[in-house]
């Protein structure tokens, strides 16, 4: 059985907001390592990989591996019934036909209990090869969200060029073109806002902005984001949390 108590329930609410528009149904794979999820969007262009490590919960107990098949829209609706400061406890027994959720307020004088019906989900688990990326950009997650949203005004795709000087996001469309360049600036006073680049080789890649904008729904989870790129392989966008991560992979657009 699974029992996982999350002191900051808001984290789970934010995680659901970050994935529910990309994927509809997914298995939460529970093991002694923690709770993991891997799922592709319907068009097989993007993939979400989530890990909530066991040490982010207190207590965390999972004596046998369980796959909890969840409709994410339903789960996010139930999670909206939890207060932002509530402690959330997830429970499931080995039959895994319902997920029990308990929300306790901080004064511990209001306890709400919900049960969500689970489903059998046949999910394709993808093997993601270990990749040494040619370029890794670490930057402010809020800045990345702003750039994606701004450039979406011009086009449905963005060209990302990384050199040792900086990273340039460019878009061209019917109404014109636009570009935002962030220079590498490791010395800025505010560490959170620094743009840092690790580069083996310059890269220039094109991606759908619709998906990138969708990924930025994870912005409330982390102040930093990393973009890992190599020529003609999927982009990895990672938001690191205190005890886990949310990773998005996006297949590139390639010239015909």
């Amino acid at each position: 059985m699974l029992e996982a108590r999350l002191q900051t329930g808001a984290l789970l609410k934010k995680v659901l907001e970050a994935i529910k528009e990309l994927i509809t149904d997914a298995n939460f794979d529970c093991s002694d390592n923690g709770i993991a999820l891997q799922a592709m969007d319907n068009s097989h262009v993007a993939l979400v990989a989530l890990l909530l490590r066991h040490d982010g919960f207190e207590p965390y107990r999972c004596d046998r591996s369980l796959a909890l098949g969840v409709n994410l829209v339903s789960l996010s609706k139930v999670l909206r019934c939890a207060g932002n400061d509530d402690i959330i406890t997830l429970k499931a027994d080995d039959t895994a036909d319902v997920l029990s959720l308990t929300f306790e307020n901080t004064d511990n004088d209001r306890i709400s209990e919900y049960e969500l019906k689970l489903m059998d989900i046949d999910s394709e688990h993808l093997g993601i090869p270990d990749t040494t990326y040619e370029a890794v950009v670490q930057m402010s997650s809020a800045e990345f969200a702003r750039i994606c949203k701004d450039l979406q005004v011009l086009s449905d795709s963005v060209q990302i060029d990384v050199t040792k000087e900086g990273v340039k996001f460019g878009a061209k469309g019917e109404l014109g073109s636009g570009a935002v360049t962030l220079k590498q600036n490791g010395n800025v006073d505010k560490e959170e806002e620094a743009t840092l680049i690790e580069l083996q080789q310059n890269v220039s890649l094109n991606f759908s902005l619709k998906y990138l904008v969708n990924f930025t729904k994870a912005t409330p989870l982390a102040s930093r984001v990393s973009l890992s790129m190599s020529s003609e392989v999927p982009l990895l966008v990672e938001y690191k949390m205190e005890a886990g991560y949310i990773r998005y992979y996006l297949a590139p657009k390639i010239g015909e």
Partner: peptide, 14 residues
């Protein structure tokens, strides 16, 4: 014109 690739051409079903 750019063509959107599928993830399945990069990642194998495990």
């Amino acid at each position: 014109p750019m063509m959107q690739k599928s993830l399945l051409s990069f990642f194998k079903t495990a």
